[in-house]
Design a protein around this nucleic acid. Sequence first.
DNA 1: AATGAATGAGTCTTCATTCAT
DNA 2: CATGAATGAAGACTCATTCAT
Lengths: 199, 199, 199, 199
Amino acid sequence: MEIQIDRPSGDKREQILEAAIQIFAHQGFHDAKVEEIAAAAGVGKGTVYEYFRSKEELFYEMLDFVRALYVDQFQKEVLTATGVNETLKRMFLNHLKFIYRHRDMARVLLVNHPVMDDKLYRWVLSRRQEMLTFCEELVRRGIASGEVREVNPAVAGLMIAGIFNSLGNQVALGETPADLPRFVSQALDVLMKGLAPKD
Amino acid sequence: MEIQIDRPSGDKREQILEAAIQIFAHQGFHDAKVEEIAAAAGVGKGTVYEYFRSKEELFYEMLDFVRALYVDQFQKEVLTATGVNETLKRMFLNHLKFIYRHRDMARVLLVNHPVMDDKLYRWVLSRRQEMLTFCEELVRRGIASGEVREVNPAVAGLMIAGIFNSLGNQVALGETPADLPRFVSQALDVLMKGLAPKD
Amino acid sequence: MEIQIDRPSGDKREQILEAAIQIFAHQGFHDAKVEEIAAAAGVGKGTVYEYFRSKEELFYEMLDFVRALYVDQFQKEVLTATGVNETLKRMFLNHLKFIYRHRDMARVLLVNHPVMDDKLYRWVLSRRQEMLTFCEELVRRGIASGEVREVNPAVAGLMIAGIFNSLGNQVALGETPADLPRFVSQALDVLMKGLAPKD
Amino acid sequence: MEIQIDRPSGDKREQILEAAIQIFAHQGFHDAKVEEIAAAAGVGKGTVYEYFRSKEELFYEMLDFVRALYVDQFQKEVLTATGVNETLKRMFLNHLKFIYRHRDMARVLLVNHPVMDDKLYRWVLSRRQEMLTFCEELVRRGIASGEVREVNPAVAGLMIAGIFNSLGNQVALGETPADLPRFVSQALDVLMKGLAPKD
DNA sequence: AATGAATGAGTCTTCATTCAT
DNA sequence: CATGAATGAAGACTCATTCAT
């Protein structure tokens, strides 16, 4: 009898989160009205408060929801790669695909930083640091394996993260290139040449 | 000749703009109260409305005010350079110095994008496009002059802009490197190697 | 014969009333949540509405419930007395004992008068009038029987009711005297001396 | 030029307090709407918040406002008396006159005890204790001066306070006696006889 | 020109009540 | 009968804006 597996008890909650992504992405935190989110989720205003203590909590839960989706995909498709070049390729491509498929979510993560308070500020810094740490570590590994020449890992990490974000912004905010793999490989070609050992 | 030190004409307006930078930077658009800005400027609440039609107009005027400062410096110190390498060096260094000297303003421009409405969204896109166009053009010139190999100028422009922003973010949001010129040259070394003609 | 210990019929209704006393007494009408009352009664929120049309009706039913308990005891222990002195003694002692045993209920009746609307206002006035009428009538009987001198029965009635309430308040809101009978007889001693015929 | 003495800068604030008395007295704390109070005061809703931080603060400020009026009159007319009998006479008469002139305020103080929270509960208890302490002390002084026989001062104090409140309630909630001085002296006659030394 | 007291539109949030299960 | 998820009406409070001085 346990048919309906798709919509377990978390049903309404997820509906609201999806709606929150849309509304927050388009209006920003302050201009988004809880009533709009409820309407977009197809529920009553009060129902939002059955699942989330406040508008602010809903906002943060949504950030974590989106991030969880991203991290999930990242772990499956990026962390399984070996070698700097391969890792970067998957990392970039994965990023652009994710953004392309979730433009609304992406806009939330990229642009919608109202700096309401220190809490969000810290959240943003924390995400940024995660990314930098990963990139820097990748460079270190590359140096160790001989794939990368002796550069300052912190600087190279910043560069990788910057390029990474810039390409992502292009997909999210600008015109999405038709051939994403080619787009990525063009960028990585320049990057890797810049990092390549003399030889 | 240095008479009128206290209050040259047009002073109030600028006082308010300076205050707006501080307050908007720290609180974001929505959490900033007009009253706070007035207080920080040392004027009455009503006075703000003598100089600016609305809080929103004040916000945009402030953005343009900050941008004008930046552009001014950019034109003096960057546009006078010749050659891709030299231009990039000045452009990066200039950027980091500006951010370092105006951390508060920088936070406004970097993080504080409430996406209140399409107006701001367009403003942000527009600034981004300006930067990309400049970088892309720089690459084209580099290719023409032989300083840069035959890369996709759009992709290279995105990369340069990404690195540019990433280093800027590091100064604004992270730890500022002690030796900025060295910091920049390390990054440009990688970048230029990546873009260098085969030899 | 003591079967059905857990849930005799009509039990739920009484459970809810008992819970209502506790919650209303501690939170007041408006701050009491129906959900809390339901929880305190060990039933679901919806169940409350099976037995009471609304929160307001529950409140009034609770008032009558408490009052019925009081009146019951009053009739058994006070109305069976003869003579003013004996009646007063039992009336006072009975009152204090009731309050002592039902402090929570007492707080409802003594302090918790939200004056939500004219309905409750009239309820309060009505209870007050009952008490005054009884006291006044008692004085009249005392005058007729010679136990009380020729005083204004309305005034004397007010005085008795006032003393009555004041001693009750002491038990409910202040420190309960250790020896209640002595406490009462001290007060009645003064009162009866004041009302005594010249003789 | 300093004519308008009646309406100093505290003008609006007092208007709001007066309106608050009316509205709170008739509707109780929870059913009173800030907007109603503002309307009754002839000001805008926001103006209330210029003078009072919250509805709750307004409520307590109103209580203190009324109490200050009362205490003021009490000090002038009651504390200047000498002798138990005279003090009681003035105290009672003063009370009834105050209530008669400020029926709305009186209802606030007498009936409107929503027990919103412990704060108000403590306020009520505190006022009650003040009254009891005063009455008890009065009895002690009477015993010392020979005006009162050797009764338990705590019990006698409770009685006096009870009679005091009962007469006040009659004026506030019931029918006001035409001849207040006579009303008071009838009650005090009984009371003082009850407290009189044997002789 | 400068001010700040006054305003009320706009929104989050609560909670009594309903009703499908 | 019993339940509690869902609802939306209602109200406290904020703050951009106005305008009399």
